[in-house]
Amino acid sequence: MNRSHRTGLSLIEIVLSMGILSLIMLPVFMTFSSGNINIQVTESEFRAHTAALELMEQIISLPFKLIKAGEYDSGQIIEGRSFAGSPVIFRVSDNPDLKPALKIEEIKRENKVVFKKITVTIAYPSARASDRMRDFTLKTLVANEDI
């Protein structure tokens, strides 16, 4: 006795569902594409971190006297280049995207140098061919044993 209904989608339904779906799908699509980029960023970060450790460790392996204070930028931190004009040379594994920077400061107490503060900063591109550079920094203190 009741009217038999026609099953079907009205236009409104289609529009609505398409809208909802696209709203839900938007972040999903973005994730799909950004997932790759995240992996790439992590890889750049990893290389920057490894380069930072390499630079930091080679400096703190030197005797205190040879760790010369100063600021050194990526133009000076090159494989085989002299460190602060001393016989010590830099060892830098090949990584053209990375820009290392080194800062060594003396901390004095009563006119005697007690520590040197070493800051290593590596600037790395946030994605493989991106222009945006990010920073990774490592810091430590080295003590003067000659007191």
Partner: peptide
Amino acid sequence: KPSLRTRGFAIMIAL
């Protein structure tokens, strides 16, 4: 004027 059931059905699938 489709029925309520029909209308909700599509949205649910989408969801």
